[in-house]
Design a protein around this nucleic acid. Structure first.
Lengths: 217, 217
DNA sequence: GCCGCGCCTTGACCCGGATCAAACGGCCGC
DNA sequence: GCGGCCGTTTGATCCGGGTCAAGGCGCGGC
């Protein structure tokens, strides 16, 4: 993802500096290569993570190899906040990433840091709301609607109407509960209707916001 | 739901008495008729609820009338724990219910009640894990697998292998992201294979646990 | 008993999305 | 510039589950 403006948490639209400070003071900066695993499914939950550069995806593999992507995390986002004793989703770097990492115990030790506390609660809230939306989407939306919702949510992150997809078609498909072919077809279809425009396969622009909004349902 | 054993929280297998006490002291007991709304989608979050009798379902309606059921809550379960300022799912009584209700502010006032705090955290953890499982199910499982998982999860609640469905086929379908006809067909199919047995439409017994487990994936 | 009403099941058909297969296109190494 | 590779698109076909339309069945009212 290209950073169009200074380091802020795009999801809360609040400066992330207080949070970032806490991570700088108490945490470690790690670098992960493309597709490298940050933590595994069933790993013990003991760390808290923040994206400093790059994009992260969480995913879960079923016994027979089907994959469901949980979510994507961008610069400033906290992740790894699962409430149970171990991770039910793995986390991987979508592209080369820098991740700030702190131990849960360190978090507890510096509890009272109001900015950090607020940020964690806020991240948990977002996590849950996105899970709820994900359930509704997977349970009740058509392929076309899922793809439209996805493009909307990406586009809403940036200030202008041009946006970059950090992930490939397979990751989109596994997030949306579809196949790669269906995702591709829906994109072609939306482009054919001049609702969106893809100058390249990873970059797009929304041409008809209202049409896309109506589809996203 | 028929109570097979004394009032305990079936999901945590811990006696619910301490929790129940807190609700008795600080809360109000309410009665709701079948299909009555306990809180609405978009209502402000201000209360905390516990099922004392009956079964509750949460659901969300899209603009064009499609419905997704979030989850079902049984005797002892806490619900209404959404972290945002307002409810994204409504809650309704599946059958006649008694619900213990306390204000969030009262909860804050008696914070430090260790049993209550633990119970709330535990309920939040369960909520999130069930959302995660729901996402994987809706994203990546076939109709047959979804129905099988659902029956498994119901059966696991009770001590014996006979179980009652508190909900009708439409509620199951809306939980599983299917239609009522598909749910019915899958049940007939599983019964045809002697994996489960339905002596009546709301009561069933699992005959081949391993087969069902394999299906539930 | 018998009717009526809700809920559930069954059947026939259709369609959206999966599957299988091939072609396309951007990008990197040479 | 030219191959080869990987990710994406496109095409043809299939099939799981949705849709539409009848029955069946249990239950309560009369």
């Amino acid at each position: 993802m290209t950073l169009a403006y200074p380091l802020t948490d795009a999801r809360t639209a609040r400066p992330a500096s207080a949070l970032t400070d806490a991570f700088e003071r108490h945490g470690v900066r790690m670098t992960y290569a493309r597709n490298e695993e940050i933590y595994a499914q069933d790993d013990e939950v003991e760390l808290l993570y923040q994206v400093a550069r790059g994009v992260v995806r969480t995913s879960r593999l079923t016994a027979d190899g089907r994959r469901q992507v949980g979510d994507f995390y961008y610069v400033g986002d906290l992740f790894g906040l699962e409430p149970g004793p171990d991770h039910r989703f793995a986390a991987e770097a979508l592209a080369e990433c820098e991740i700030m990492v702190v131990r849960r115990s360190a978090v507890r030790a510096i509890a009272g840091d109001a900015a950090l506390d607020r940020a964690i609660l806020e991240a948990q809230r977002l996590e849950m709301e996105r899970l709820q939306d994900h359930v509704v989407m997977l349970g009740r939306k058509s392929a076309r609607e899922r793809v439209a919702s996805f493009l909307m949510s990406i586009a809403q992150r940036g200030p202008d109407d041009h946006a970059d997809l950090a992930m490939g078609r397979q990751d989109m498909a596994d997030y949306l509960g579809l196949t790669i072919e269906t995702v591709s077809r829906m994109l072609t279809q939306l482009q054919g209707e001049a609702i969106v425009d893809f100058p390249s396969s990873r970059r797009f622009q929304i041409r008809k916001w209202t049409a896309l909004e109506a589809l996203a349902a």
